[in-house]
Structures are given as structure tokens and as C-alpha cells.
Deep mutational scan, measured.
Amino acid sequence: TYYTVKSGDTLNKIAAQYGVSVANLRSWNGISGDLIFVGQKLIVKKG
């Protein structure tokens, strides 16, 4: 599943929405910090 980042989104918010961990979101998307951008597509695997 792909999720497109919207204004106001955070990794924590997206992780909670999908029932996954922030660590997994980072791993699946090659993100090291907490910086995400509006319009960015993130890979999300269902929890």
C-alpha cells in the first residue's frame, strides 16, 4: 500500500493510522529521521 503524505502528517500519525511502528515505516521507506514531505509517497505494509 502507498500513502501520500498530506500537510500536517507525521510519521507517528501515519504509523498509528495503519497500526504499524514508526521504525517499520522508516525501514520500508529508507528514512533515517522524522523528515517527510507533502506529496511524498510512503510504502505502508498493513500491521
Score class of each variant (00 low, 15 high):
15 A>Q: 02
27 S>M: 10
31 I>E: 03
26 R>N: 06
17 Q>L: 09
24 N>S: 13
46 K>F: 14
39 G>E: 04
34 D>P: 06
8 G>R: 05
40 Q>Y: 04
6 K>M: 13
25 L>I: 10
15 A>H: 02
4 T>Y: 13
25 L>F: 02
41 K>Y: 12
31 I>A: 03
8 G>P: 03
45 K>F: 12
41 K>A: 10
11 L>W: 05
22 V>H: 04
22 V>Q: 07
24 N>C: 05
17 Q>F: 15
5 V>Y: 03
45 K>A: 13
8 G>E: 08
7 S>R: 13
30 G>V: 11
46 K>N: 13
27 S>Y: 14
36 I>K: 02
28 W>H: 04
26 R>D: 02
21 S>K: 07
39 G>C: 04
18 Y>T: 13
23 A>L: 13
26 R>E: 12
35 L>G: 11
43 I>M: 11
14 I>Q: 00
33 G>L: 08
23 A>P: 14
2 Y>M: 09
43 I>Q: 09
23 A>W: 10
23 A>K: 11
42 L>C: 02
18 Y>Q: 09
18 Y>F: 10
2 Y>T: 15
30 G>E: 15
2 Y>W: 14
9 D>A: 02
23 A>T: 07
18 Y>I: 10
23 A>V: 08
8 G>S: 06
26 R>T: 10
28 W>G: 02
41 K>M: 12
21 S>L: 08
14 I>R: 00
7 S>M: 10
21 S>Q: 06
21 S>Y: 05
13 K>E: 12
16 A>L: 15
36 I>F: 06
22 V>F: 04
38 V>A: 11
25 L>D: 00
5 V>M: 03
44 V>I: 15
10 T>E: 06
45 K>C: 04
36 I>M: 07
41 K>D: 08
32 S>C: 05
47 G>V: 13
31 I>V: 15
9 D>V: 02
26 R>I: 15
22 V>L: 11
27 S>V: 13
31 I>G: 03
17 Q>T: 15
25 L>A: 01
39 G>K: 04
26 R>P: 00
30 G>C: 04
41 K>C: 06
30 G>W: 06
15 A>D: 00
3 Y>L: 04
38 V>K: 08
33 G>S: 09
6 K>N: 13
25 L>H: 00
11 L>G: 01
37 F>H: 12
41 K>Q: 14
16 A>D: 14
23 A>C: 07
5 V>D: 00
9 D>W: 01
18 Y>S: 07
28 W>R: 02
3 Y>G: 01
20 V>Y: 04
11 L>Q: 02
4 T>D: 06
16 A>F: 14
46 K>P: 14
5 V>F: 03
26 R>Y: 06
36 I>L: 13
33 G>F: 09
16 A>C: 05
40 Q>H: 05
35 L>A: 13
24 N>V: 11
46 K>M: 14
35 L>R: 11
12 N>K: 13
8 G>Q: 06
46 K>E: 14
32 S>N: 12
20 V>K: 03
10 T>M: 05
18 Y>V: 10
20 V>S: 07
19 G>P: 02
4 T>V: 12
3 Y>F: 04
7 S>A: 09
5 V>G: 02
28 W>Q: 04
38 V>S: 09
3 Y>A: 05
32 S>Q: 10
13 K>G: 14
37 F>Y: 08
18 Y>W: 14
5 V>C: 05
14 I>Y: 01
34 D>Q: 08
24 N>D: 11
32 S>E: 11
19 G>M: 12
6 K>S: 15
17 Q>C: 05
6 K>V: 13
1 T>I: 13
33 G>W: 06
20 V>T: 10
10 T>K: 05
16 A>E: 11
31 I>Q: 04
23 A>M: 09
17 Q>A: 15
15 A>I: 02
35 L>S: 10
15 A>P: 00
8 G>L: 06
39 G>V: 01
22 V>T: 10
1 T>C: 05
12 N>D: 13
14 I>A: 01
25 L>G: 00
32 S>M: 07
1 T>S: 11
24 N>F: 09
17 Q>P: 01
35 L>F: 15
2 Y>E: 12
18 Y>G: 03
11 L>D: 01
23 A>F: 09
32 S>F: 12
36 I>V: 08
33 G>K: 08
43 I>G: 02
8 G>F: 06
47 G>R: 07
42 L>W: 01
43 I>E: 06
28 W>F: 05
14 I>P: 00
44 V>Q: 01
7 S>G: 13
11 L>K: 00
1 T>H: 10
21 S>D: 15
24 N>R: 09
31 I>K: 02
10 T>C: 03
40 Q>P: 01
37 F>W: 12
24 N>G: 08
43 I>H: 08
37 F>Q: 10
46 K>G: 15
40 Q>T: 07
42 L>P: 00
19 G>C: 06
24 N>Q: 14
24 N>K: 12
37 F>R: 09
29 N>I: 01
27 S>K: 14
43 I>V: 09
18 Y>D: 01
47 G>F: 10
45 K>E: 12
40 Q>G: 03
33 G>D: 14
45 K>R: 09
35 L>Q: 11
1 T>M: 11
22 V>S: 08
36 I>E: 03
1 T>A: 15
25 L>W: 00
2 Y>S: 10
41 K>G: 08
22 V>G: 05
24 N>M: 11
38 V>T: 12
13 K>W: 15
3 Y>I: 09
30 G>A: 14
42 L>I: 12
47 G>S: 11
23 A>I: 10
25 L>K: 00
26 R>C: 06
28 W>L: 07
44 V>W: 03
35 L>N: 09
27 S>C: 05
32 S>Y: 13
44 V>N: 02
14 I>L: 08
39 G>A: 04
11 L>V: 08
37 F>L: 09
18 Y>M: 11
21 S>T: 14
37 F>E: 08
14 I>K: 00
10 T>A: 05
36 I>C: 03
19 G>R: 14
8 G>C: 07
42 L>G: 00
12 N>H: 10
21 S>P: 13
2 Y>C: 05
1 T>Q: 12
32 S>W: 10
6 K>T: 11
36 I>W: 03
25 L>V: 06
12 N>F: 10
28 W>C: 03
43 I>K: 07
29 N>L: 01
4 T>G: 04
38 V>G: 05
44 V>F: 05
31 I>D: 03
16 A>T: 13
24 N>I: 11
14 I>N: 00
39 G>M: 04
38 V>L: 08
15 A>G: 10
24 N>H: 10
33 G>V: 07
28 W>K: 02
1 T>R: 08
2 Y>G: 06
40 Q>V: 05
11 L>I: 13
12 N>A: 10
45 K>H: 14
17 Q>V: 15
12 N>T: 11
41 K>W: 10
38 V>C: 05
